[in-house]
Write a protein that binds this DNA or RNA. Sequence first.
DNA 1: TACACGTGGGC
DNA 2: TGCCCAAGTGT
Length: 362
Amino acid sequence: MAYETPEPKKKSTGDVSRALLRWYDKNARSLPWRIGPAARKAGKRPDPYAVWLSEIMLQQTTVATVAPRYSEFLKRWPTVDDMAAAPLDDILGQWAGLGYYARARNLHKCAVEVAACGGFPDTEEALRELPGIGQYTAAAVAAIAFDKRAVVIDGNVERVVSRLCAIDTPMPAAKPVIKTQAEKIWPQKRSGDFAQGLMDLGAEICRPKSPSCLICPISSACEALAQGKQEYFPVKAPKKEKPHRKGVIFALINTKGEMLFERRPEKGLLGGMLGLPGSDWAPVPPSKIFESAPLKARWNHIGNITHTFTHFHLMLDVYIAKAPKGFRRVADQKWIAPSQAKLPTVMKKAVSLAMENSRGEK
DNA sequence: TACACGTGGGC
DNA sequence: TGCCCAAGTGT
């Protein structure tokens, strides 16, 4: 018998947005910064400050990581005016461990600007001018907080749309293609719910690995599924190899058991954060190891720690010593009890190793 | 356009 | 263990 399977009925673009919104109405994740679809329909609007804060924290960071940290931020600084009035170092300390510290520096800068203007602007264009707000965040805040129609494209949306339309141009060249296709399915109303629905779909159904196409509300319109190539999209360029870098780092301990920390330069890696003094991080270990030490002392090598950043692997040799009588810290240095220091993770690792080996050094 | 910029969890 | 990935932005 030569009968072919009839082509399944494809949905129109309007059908896709209706199906997605219907799915979102029933399956929206309950998140601390979110007004659910039912309350939203009843007219409840989220606080733009809360939406903005959550969006900044969620940049390249998982929902599971952000949720508790978001609540702490909101409790400490309930309004944008509170945040604007806080010292930058308090923001950075509260941000410690979250990574991408430029977000925290821009968070403060943005809060100051917004507080000075009496509130957040409500258009994508004006939001886009604020520090730390790029194309994605401007669209997200405009849509979610202000109910504006804005095409919100994050990693989830890219994945869903590239599969839906089987876009085989490799990333990031596919971005304009994805934008064009997203524009076609984007509804005029409920833009914020549609964006969040697409993101929930990407997180829970249209996952990077083993997507749950069987329960996907828009599977009948999915070209990737029709081709049996769900996981093939989005097509990505091959990754570059991470280089290895090395350095040394010094833990100086005083008689109170405090450790000497420095505030790192405002720009660049871990900018503005607290860290232990040490060498630069280069492809080779420093030739004159003790030139970067905070003083001449009997430094005791206790081992090394490793850490992988986005773009390189790092190995640091860790040295400890006890501060001699009469040692005076310089301006940007501070004595802090190690348990109380708000540190980036790589520094936490070095401090932990130093603490484990500090018997006899304090 | 390409790269700098963190971290923790999953497999 | 090591690689992939997560609601991106700035330069």
